[in-house]
Nucleic acid binder design. Sequence first.
DNA 1: CGTCACATCTGCGAAATCCGCAAGGTGTCG
DNA 2: CGACACCTTGCGGATTTCGCAGATGTGACG
Lengths: 173, 173
Amino acid sequence: MHSEVVASRSADQRDSSRESRNGNSPQLDAVSLAIIQQLQEDGRRPYAAIGKAVGLSEAAVRQRVQKLLDQGVMQIVAVTDPLTVGFRRQAMVGINVEGDVESIADALTDMSEVEYVVMTAGSFDILAEIVCEDDDHLLDVINKRIRSLPGVRSTESFVYLKLKKQTYMWGTR
Amino acid sequence: MHSEVVASRSADQRDSSRESRNGNSPQLDAVSLAIIQQLQEDGRRPYAAIGKAVGLSEAAVRQRVQKLLDQGVMQIVAVTDPLTVGFRRQAMVGINVEGDVESIADALTDMSEVEYVVMTAGSFDILAEIVCEDDDHLLDVINKRIRSLPGVRSTESFVYLKLKKQTYMWGTR
DNA sequence: CGTCACATCTGCGAAATCCGCAAGGTGTCG
DNA sequence: CGACACCTTGCGGATTTCGCAGATGTGACG
């Protein structure tokens, strides 16, 4: 099923190849953008339907989608409200660091409870979102795992009370 | 990638109705959770493959997925790195409110540049994530649109410098 | 200028998947 | 018991996916 061949990955664009991670964008053209929009509305929409919408053949759409996935420009995934999946405690943690900020960010990235890590300008060096099953779990992650990282000067936690909005419509405006 | 397995999990799940008795609206059982996990790995995975992985028939998976989508428990969508789609400035904004917090949160929710709104405990009442095209746009949203909302006492912005991690694997642990 | 290398699109069968439907089976609950 | 919810198996037909061959376009280079 699903051979997944990855075949190529082949370079594709002469200049990029650095791709993924937040480098600079492999410059998406209008067609790829339109394809992404289609898939933001429905991640399972058939290639033929997308092709009709963006003016490409089914095969061409398939190739472009595969490339976008290979390059890491987009992912097609199921997203849920963590609460409905059994994670009852979430928090954003602001962190101040002395020394190398990036290494701390990397350490956070390795924690499975950490969903989101971003380096920021302002009164925090790093913001990290934590998703936990209960209070004990959250307490453990913040106090034992994060505060104990060498270089973490201080942390401030914002426990989530109510999630009001969460969209994935970048580019669909 | 994903060379693996599927390994059936065989097993009867006819007793599963007792677990996951969360007070939440659409309580999910273990099987639905497993389905969601499958779709978090690949939103386009065929129903038959999912069925093999979670121990259900293709038809049953199809029904469950449809219901999960109808109920709004999950969405299957393409997600992208905003940078690659042309949004170059992002920020998290912490907001303090006097009066009704929820109405402010609702007002933020209505702004298309606001991706994420959550009410929190701690030194901010609300955290909102803003996605903009450039600095001017960001400045405009924060200063003109957010700070001018009646009831907003103060705001503090954290401009994103580097996104290190962003996952959608809730439940996949 | 010719042409090689490569990326991309199109067309087209073959295989696989999706999807609705029907005919049970089983467990819960009032 | 009967209603109900949910799963299973099985089945075709419509649709989609997938690989591949062929056509086209473009940049690099001798």
